[in-house]
Amino acid sequence: MLNKTRFLTALLLTAAPVMAHGAHAADITGAGSSFAAPIYQAWGDGAKSAIGVSLNYQSVGSSAGQNLVTARTVDFGASDAPMADSKLASSALYQFPTVIGGIVPIVNIPGVASNQLKLNGSVLADIYLGKISNWNDPKIVALNPGVSLPDTAIAPVHRADGSGTTFVFTSYLTKMSADWKDQVGAATSVQWAGGAGARGNDGVGSSVRATEGGIGYVEYAYARRNSIPTVQLQDKDGEFVSPDLGSFSAAAASADWDHASHFAVDLLNGAGKNVWPIVSATFVLVPTNPKDAARADAVYKFFDHSFRTGDATAQKLDYVALPESVKQKIEAGYPGKK
């Protein structure tokens, strides 16, 4: 009981800024994914002027987003890790995707330009397992003929908070490395072999920029906006692919939405030409039994407006918009809107 009390106390303390701010200055409140924060904030600017719905969104990480909406502290939660079917049912939540984006490794290696370094999934896993500790390790050199790699220690950076970005990244490593699958696995929080932790995509990006030899993983827009070097990754066919909107779109085009339970489609290491291997949808969770019908209706109006008018904004921020057929399925299943 004591541990449960401590958890609830911590949850409410985390939610306090959301609750206090939302009660006075926002029509709806959301919290969770830092991966999705840029698009929700941009959509919020558009919705306020167009339909009179104000959004207060807190970028607190996917795990917190799931916990806060489950506790009905916010009007919607946001998570890059889809919630399990059983938990959706027990928590009375409806889950749907909003946009698709790429997770990218970022590096700070003296003398190595953006997208000059080539890595594959097994080498990336070995770096985070601590098995590869220098940038001139033979396994990295073998993937990069002609690139001068320094004898610089690798400094891995990972998310310190419960993170959907971590879930996507570790899910990819689990697919690519048997050792990673056996020793670490995929989750929003894992037991890292070493390295430094930082909160949010912005925290990981800042840490890598400040650390010679650093490597981390962030949502692509954070890397691009902050001019942090990214890498090429080997795709399913053995070709090396650079991260950009085109390679993310190619991954999204191969998605099997028809057989995805609660829209939890698998976009990792997909087949096809120029397919970036670490791509994910990001998800929203809304109560099917909301405490306040008016606020729940405002949430619906917010996402309805954003889906109808926000594709260009998503593309500008380096996300891939959902196919129209998926938007129609979301609309058909939305609680109270059938």
Rank of each mutant, 00 (worst) to 15 (best):
Y334R: 02
S86R: 10
G102K: 02
V208R: 06
G111V: 11
G32P: 05
S242E: 05
D27C: 04
A92R: 14
N67Y: 05
W43A: 10
V112E: 00
E239R: 11
A196E: 15
G310C: 04
L233W: 11
T282L: 12
F307S: 09
G61L: 03
K175V: 05
K48Q: 14
P82Y: 03
Q183M: 09
I106D: 01
P243R: 00
G195V: 14
K273P: 10
Q58S: 15
S90C: 02
D80I: 00
W135E: 03
D311R: 14
A198I: 13
N3Q: 13
A153R: 11
G195I: 14
Y220R: 08
N144I: 07
G46N: 07
D237I: 01
R72N: 12
E239N: 15
G121P: 15
G197L: 11
N56P: 04
K181L: 08
Y319W: 06
Q232N: 12
F303C: 11
K118Q: 10
W180H: 13
V208T: 14
A252N: 05
H259K: 15
G22W: 02
A26C: 04
Q95G: 02
I228C: 13
D244Y: 06
D297E: 15
I106G: 04
A210I: 07
G32H: 03
N144S: 12
G214C: 08
P229I: 12
G272Y: 00
V74H: 01
